[in-house]
Design a protein around this nucleic acid. Structure first.
Lengths: 363, 363
DNA sequence: TTGAAAGCGCTAACAG
DNA sequence: CTGTTAGCGCTTTCAA
């Protein structure tokens, strides 16, 4: 039993291929009568178009590519979910790839997706998106970047990392901390670790606290995973900076870090306070509930997908790029030892809210 | 600047399309000399085949479809990672879809993937795979099912849920518990909640403990998320069964459950012990580190992908189905109040080990 | 309003 | 060994 094609339908309806195609694609030059007739025949015979054939002749498919750095980081979970939902709403499919911090994989996947004629791309890039911009333009494939490692002229949704870090460190300072460490993800001058580093330094500066190199640790592989934080914490403790608080690049690193501290018999927050970044879903359920800088992840994915479809549907002029910058928010829990412990029951459904974006548009 | 096609290559090389195709596809009837020449021209011109055209004419693509129930459940993270890696090794792309426990979405996605001529499918199904078997056979698309909700004649990788549950409950009994509750995910007779329920009952029976209906709670939506566990716990506590221990369908439910207990001022494990299922990555880092039944997730994904490619590459006879059943293992941590608290530093790299499968093959 | 016909880029008989 | 040719299923001019 072979699948039915437009040819079959044409035969049954006694019309030409072109007419069937017009009916199926809602194209103008066709009489309502024949259109209805064809549509009826199509649905009665369970016709569904072959996406490959359509893609080949149109040079474009209904697939959207998603390129992620680390699909296992729960930070991306709500992002994927949001994107997936939007993509589905638009009648498209989602192709998810995972680069695992590998540049070669990143390039390979982007190329592969382009070859597969995706009609759009959402990329959480490792390297400067600039690298891909020309290619994308040449192929006329719209793309939205998530937290790109540098400012470029493209559609992207980002987070105000400087503010987030600043708020976190500032909070620690208010609590009386003077020797605050920063565990970077990879080199401190690599974006976005760099921006968070900046926020960290600014907060120190504004409070007249000295900056000390011993208090900054850069993780080796830069993958931002739990084990990295674990190792980094040991390194930090052996540096002799005697931190009383640690601000980490992300929650996973914070988790690893707290594990190391625990193992060393150092109490959190009594001996050392810890603040993370992201507010992944588990942050509130941890051994020591984590104070962290919340990124509205679901919203981030939702906005990215929206921006992408705006472009795909041609609702925006070619050079009218949008850079949406989301404002992160400090969520105070136990790990920083504040008197104000808000370890409340989470608003479980919060990430589903379709509230108006708190986003602000930069420039 | 248009992309180069085999036509161009044929022209440049002064040969026919067929010859180019033969060179590019490593087909036999071609002389080494022309083959090399063509390959050189191709690579010098940065040629890469159009997957859509190829897919159209072959009726098959290099894409593999993955159908998940809940992409946000960290249980799937290592599974996705394993599959993704294998798929990449085989030079294929992965199409990930997320059904979010919706039957319509499940059907829709499977159909859509088939229409897109994926060359294989890995499905974590909501409903009985039987439903899809005929369709898959007709289309000749191999598929591997993850934890299918019933035994069917197909390739699948599963977990010995009965044993896992039995071990968990048995352990609680050994610790002296007599009133042990079970929080099911959805109806207790729905697979795999049913199997875990069975293990639970068997353990009670073997230890001459009475079964009490008040001690079983079925969650409403059956999505197995944190909030469900949270609500279920309240329901359980109001049932009057006075449990001293709770065995939950999965870790997320356990987390929600522990949150509810905490809110009620009930201590874990002193007042009530809790045991989960899955051993998601975060289980060990929780407020109260979770005793749970570990499923070797990475291995599960790895095996699934291996089985799939065995089929795709025709390495197995049509009716030689494999059902790999992984053996879960109880991981004892603090939440069950054992004297033997193994809250050790995790073997961070453990899931990457490519150790020989501990799997056993059933029938 | 409809149809004929030429592709989209590649594969796969079938001849030579 | 190599070339010719006919598709794969659909879109899209261009005529009618």
């Amino acid at each position: 039993m072979k699948k039915i094609t437009i040819k079959d339908i044409a035969r049954i309806a006694g019309v030409s291929l072109a007419t069937v195609s017009r009916a199926l694609n809602n194209l103008p030059r066709i009489s309502p009568a024949t259109k209805e007739k064809i549509l009826r025949i199509a649905s009665r015979n369970g016709y569904s178009p072959n996406p490959l054939a359509r893609g080949l002749s149109k040079g474009k498919t209904n697939n959207i590519g998603l390129v992620l750095i680390d699909i296992t980081n729960p930070f991306y979970s709500p992002i994927i979910q949001a994107i997936e939902r939007k993509v589905e709403e638009e009648g498209c499919n989602l192709l998810v790839t995972n680069t695992e911090h590998s540049l070669t994989k990143e390039e390979k996947y982007i190329n592969s997706l382009l070859e597969n004629r995706v009609s759009g791309l959402i990329i959480s890039p490792i390297q400067n998106p600039q690298r891909y911009l020309e290619l994308l333009k040449k192929r006329k494939i719209p793309a939205v970047f998530l937290c790109p490692p540098s400012e470029v002229k493209c559609d992207c949704v980002d987070v105000d990392n400087i503010k987030g870090a600043y708020d976190a460190v500032n909070h620690l300072i208010r609590l009386g901390h003077k020797r605050i460490a920063y565990i970077s993800r990879g080199l401190r001058h690599r974006h976005p670790a760099c921006q968070r580093f900046l926020g960290y330094r600014n907060a120190l500066r504004d409070n007249n606290l000295p900056f000390s190199d011993e208090l900054v640790v850069e993780t080796i592989t830069g993958q931002g995973k739990i084990e990295e934080g674990y190792q980094a914490a040991f390194k930090l403790l052996s540096n002799g900076g005697n931190p009383t608080a640690i601000f980490t690049f992300n929650d996973l690193i914070a988790i690893g870090c707290m594990r190391a501290l625990k193992e060393k018999g150092i109490r959190v927050p009594e001996d050392i306070a810890v603040v993370g970044f992201d507010d992944i879903g588990f942050a509130q359920f941890l051994d020591v509930p984590l104070t962290t800088v919340k990124i509205p992840e679901y919203e981030m994915g939702d906005i990215a997908a929206t921006l992408l479809f705006e472009r795909i549907n041609g609702e925006r002029k070619a050079n009218n790029y949008k850079r949406i910058c989301l404002i992160p928010e400090l969520v105070i829990r136990k790990s920083c030892g504040s008197r104000f412990i808000h370890d409340l029951i989470p608003d479980f459904a919060s990430h589903r809210k379709t509230t108006e974006s708190q986003a602000i548009k930069h420039r």
